[in-house]
Nucleic acid binder design. Structure first.
Length: 200
DNA sequence: AGCCAGGCTACCG
DNA sequence: CGGTAGCATGGC
């Protein structure tokens, strides 16, 4: 039996600490203390939405522009004209949809008033699906919840740990069942799976 | 020069 | 329910 803990250490040996979630373009290997403030927390949420089916490289361009234009903020995004917002995030693709998603999420984020959202609440927001919700919970709120993405499925299939495409929730339960619920470990594991997926 | 990226919604049978 | 078209740009 191929233990997923063994897969984790192999990935770590091969790729090293990934330093997720990147804040303002910077990674911070083996330091899981981010976000350090609300501003950074919101940036993670925006990045999680913008990176939907999109290369992170393109998301960075959008984040850079939002930062430069000083609208990387929930209230500012809501106050920004749709066309201007679309222009800022254009490199991240699907800009019509994503502009709407950012506004819907900003409204939701403000309504939280500093409280931590539940998974159910996140999923009720238009444009937030399971992976995005779990990424936000794990990386922005340090909740020990495993993020499942296309790379995770591919990895489990390649290692013949699963037969054919199981559901998101089943795969997530698989990890939850076998790993201690530690947000740092979940953070690193998911980041490593993505890194492996990118470099094939 | 295609293919594909750190998905989601809407709609179909 | 599961399956899939459409969304869009930029990197390799």
């Amino acid at each position: 039996m191929r233990d997923i803990k063994k897969i984790y250490s192999e990935l770590l040996n091969t790729h090293g600490y990934q330093g997720w979630w990147p804040i303002a373009g910077k990674y911070h290997p083996n330091d899981y203390s981010y976000p350090k403030n609300e501003k950074q927390r919101f940036e993670i949420c925006v990045g999680a939405i913008l990176t939907q089916n999109t290369a992170w490289k393109n998301v960075e361009k959008a984040l850079f522009t939002l930062r430069k234009e000083k609208i990387l903020d929930a209230k500012k995004i809501l106050d920004t004209d749709d066309e201007r917002l679309k222009g800022c995030i254009r490199p991240a693709g699907y800009f019509n949809q994503k502009a709407r998603k950012l506004k819907e999420f900003s409204k939701f984020y403000i309504s939280l008033d500093g409280r931590k959202p539940t998974r159910e609440q996140l999923l009720s927001v238009w444009g937030v699906g399971k992976e995005t919700a779990d990424s936000i919970l794990l990386y922005a709120y340090h909740e020990p919840i495993f993020v499942v993405d296309a790379y995770t499925r591919r990895l489990l299939l390649q290692k013949k740990i699963i037969a054919v495409s199981e559901s998101y929730d089943e795969i997530q339960a698989f990890f939850h069942k076998r790993l201690k619920k530690d947000h740092k470990k979940f953070n690193e594991f998911h980041a490593l799976i993505v890194e492996r997926g990118k470099t094939r």
